[in-house]
Amino acid sequence: MSPRISPEQVRHVAKLARLSITDAEASQLAEELGVILEHAEDVAALDLSDIEPTAHPIHLTNVLRDDAPKPSLDRDEVLAAAPATEDRRFRVPRIMGETQ
């Protein structure tokens, strides 16, 4: 069985998914994901070029709500659930990536 995904790819995907992984985990995941993807080959190999994808099993449209205000949550309760807060806000370590 040849792994379809390399440890390098695993590390890239882990970065996208914000999961810190060790090198050992990267190798193990590469192998496990390889097995699963190998199994998914039956699907990947099908010729479905003239089939429309289904994103959702039911076909509803225009499910809309009225623009009417509802009560918000109690701020103290909301902030009490957070790991760190300061000055009525959620506190996070410094941000190195750019604003999107």
């Binding site: 990947a44 099908l46 429309e52 289904t54």
Partner: peptide
């Protein structure tokens, strides 16, 4: 396309 998109098409087939 190869994975998620293809799987959605299989969903169409199953339906």
């Amino acid at each position: 396309d190869a994975y998620y998109g293809q799987a959605q098409k299989v969903r169409t087939l199953i339906i």
